[in-house]
Design a protein around this nucleic acid. Structure first.
Length: 271
DNA sequence: CGACTATACCGTATTACATCA
DNA sequence: GCTGATGTAATACGGTATAGT
């Protein structure tokens, strides 16, 4: 969790102290009179004493609105290109604003500090959303690569089995078991390959598909896959650490998904 | 010192408005 | 001019951290 910037209060609060116009929801919602979406009885935009509406909009026009959804922010204005530019460049250097910088930036841009804070908040949300899309694409590409490699190996193996029907499979038999220092005959090798779930290539009758953006059902199928536990366990550790939301904070694509930073591919387990 | 309170900030979901095709 | 899609500023809400009482 990145550090939060909190302005240390320099005032000694006392009983009965009236909090300064906070720019946040706690104060805004303190009266909290059955607030419903679209109905903001304390609409900060219209209470902010320093707030100066955009040059063109006399926002008082909304007074007396007759629609059921009253209190619409008619003075909502998009920020100017210049403002966006400044905000963007600040966001590039730091995604969370120090209160002092927020105030300064707000002053420079002629915005309310709250507007700056909200912009950063929305920006982080948008950025995260796009990041998730990117990460998913990378993951999908990796998976598809793995799937096609799997198919290739499967075909190779079948070819070898057909080629030498009576013979022992050189590719897996003794080699696999040689780590135990035993000489294994063809029968035991074959027997193990049939019973050992880890040697389960043949078991996959339908093989592996290719993930596409469109077919979400396929995605679901593969991410709940029981057929190939080995594959899943490589993509997602059994402890769920990859999908644990706690780790998302540090999941900034140069971490988990940045394959360019390493020659190692996770599917190399299989190679 | 611990409980309580107030405030600030966060992420997420949602709303409402502006803009464009 | 109307309409639906999209982008985005703003709000709502629940949660957490921190400082003061």
């Amino acid at each position: 969790m990145p550090p939060r910037y909190r302005e240390k209060s320099t005032v000694g609060y006392h009983a009965g102290y009236k909090a300064p116009q906070t720019e946040d929801k706690k104060a805004a919602t303190k009266p909290l009179q059955s607030v419903r979406p679209g109905e903001d009885p304390t609409s900060k935009m219209f209470e902010e004493e320093e707030y100066s509406p955009s040059e063109t909009e006399p926002f008082s026009c909304m007074n007396g609105a007759t629609t059921s959804r009253k209190k619409k922010n008619k003075n909502k204005r998009r920020f100017s290109d210049e403002q966006i530019k400044s905000l963007e460049s600040m966001f590039e250097s730091e995604t969370r604003l120090e209160p002092r910088k927020k105030m300064q930036l707000a002053k420079e841009l002629g915005l309310q500090p709250r507007q700056v804070a909200i912009w950063f908040q929305n920006k982080r949300a948008r950025w995260k959303s796009k990041q998730l899309e990117r990460d998913y694409s990378i993951l999908r590409a990796s998976y598809n690569s793995l799937a096609s490699r799997f198919e290739t190996l499967k075909k190779e193996k079948q070819a070898l089995v057909v080629q030498k029907p009576g013979e022992e499979g050189d590719c897996q038999g003794p080699a696999v078991n040689s780590r135990e220092g035993k000489s294994v005959n063809a029968d035991t090798t074959k027997g193990e390959s049939e019973t050992n779930p880890r040697l389960s290539i043949e078991r996959s009758e339908h093989g592996l598909g290719v993930l596409s953006d469109e077919d979400s059902s396929i995605k679901a199928e593969y991410f709940e896959l029981e057929e190939e536990p080995n594959l899943i366990s490589m993509v997602e550790p059994a402890d769920g650490s990859l999908t644990s939301q706690e780790d998302w904070g540090s999941l900034d694509s140069d971490g988990l998904f940045d394959q360019s930073s390493s020659d190692y591919q996770w599917w190399d387990f299989w190679a």
